[in-house]
């Protein structure tokens, strides 16, 4: 396997930065997320970032197009995406899997979301295996292999003080080609991942939920929920959005932004009717969407076991407990 010392990682990133806009997982302002690589960024390799990389593909607020409205006329103007290839280094398997989910949503079922597609097409990914899961991790229970990501261009392995690199796609081979001179060939063993703290058994949970829309567990599960959007905003798979506009006199900028099914206004109709009026319906929709509706529609779970929602929930409403409750329900 081609390897590099972790201490020399920045050399490689510097080389790649000549070709790509490189994004790395880093500590920043008392949180962590993927940011543009610079020599002085505080890269973190020992745990996943607190904010998922979804905003690289699906920004929290994304300008879509502009309109100029003068009296009765309205002219449309496209907004072009920033050009150039991006390279996302150090994406964990859970977050790579979330891109798989996003691809289903944004690229299938008859309509292609061009805003997403443009970004997706311009990003090359180097996935990084996890040697030690964080306490809130449960990816394996969601069918994600923490050592081998889906859809990565390059798979990187955490080998202790070194990182091993393996090209997966053609695009990945190009990346390896660029840095080949800085890598050495070594017979490296991919280490076994550490134990998961959370024991989760999600087998059959999707099927079980088929008959559980009216189950009393939703009353129970939702009671403590505050209906904030923290879980949905840190979730790498939550993809729901709103479309709105910023009006500055004649100039209107249409944008889309993350929205959350936890908010009452999300399904509030103009006439006043709200099909999901209380937290019970909203919490039920969130978990049903992740564990039943999405599998029904796209044949995969909409949860990758990254554990971020568990990490941020103000009241510790833990999806793994919900899964357990579902499985134990009569």
């Amino acid at each position: 396997m081609l390897v590099v010392l972790k201490a020399k990682l920045k050399d490689i990133l510097n080389t790649l930065a000549e070709e790509y806009k490189v994004l790395v997982p880093a500590k920043i302002e008392d949180t962590s997320k993927f940011i543009s690589y610079k020599d002085n960024v505080d890269i973190i390799l020992d745990e996943n970032v607190k904010l998922s990389p979804k905003d690289v593909f699906f920004p929290q607020t994304e300008k879509m197009y502009k309109m100029k409205t003068v009296k009765t006329s309205m002219e449309l103007e496209n907004i072009t995406d920033e050009a150039g290839k991006k390279l996302l280094f150090g994406v964990r398997s859970c977050d790579m899997k979330s891109l798989d989910c996003f691809d289903q949503v944004f690229l299938t079922k008859g309509y292609i979301d061009e805003f997403y597609k443009n970004k997706r097409d311009s990003v090359v990914t180097i996935a990084l295996s996890c040697s030690q899961p964080m306490q809130t991790c449960f990816c394996s229970a969601m069918g994600v292999d923490s050592q081998k990501a889906v859809g990565a261009d390059v798979q990187a392995y955490d080998l202790g003080d070194k990182i091993g690199l393996e090209a997966i796609s053609d695009e990945g081979s190009k990346v390896i080609e660029l840095i080949k001179g800085q890598l050495t060939e070594e017979g490296a063993e991919v280490p076994q991942p550490g134990e998961f703290y959370l024991k989760v058994d999600a087998d059959g949970v999707s099927e079980k939920l088929n008959g559980m829309f009216e189950s009393p567990i939703w009353d129970d599960v939702s009671k403590k929920c505050l209906n904030c959007g923290a879980c949905t905003y840190v979730c790498p798979t939550c993809h729901c959005f709103d479309i709105s506009q910023e009006v500055r006199g004649e100039n209107v900028t249409k944008y889309r932004c993350w929205d959350s099914c936890m908010f009452g206004e999300y399904t509030q109709m103009a006439g006043g009717h709200n099909p999901r009026p209380t937290k019970k319906e909203r919490v039920r929709n969130r978990f049903m969407h992740k564990l039943n509706y999405f599998p029904d529609r796209y044949n995969m779970l909409l949860c990758t076991g990254c554990g971020r929602c568990i990490n941020v929930c103000p009241v510790n409403l833990d999806i793994t407990s919900v899964i357990k409750q579902i499985k134990e329900a009569e």
């Binding site: 949503v105 944004f106 079922k109 008859g110 309509y111 979301d113 829309f213 993809h239 729901c240 959005f241 709103d242 479309i243 889309r256 929205d259 099914c261 999300y266 399904t267 099909p275 929709n285 049903m288 969407h289 039943n292 509706y293 999405f294 029904d296 529609r297």
Partner: peptide, 11 residues
Amino acid sequence: VGKCGRCNIGS
């Protein structure tokens, strides 16, 4: 077009 999420009834 089935992307933004809010109009779901079940799946």
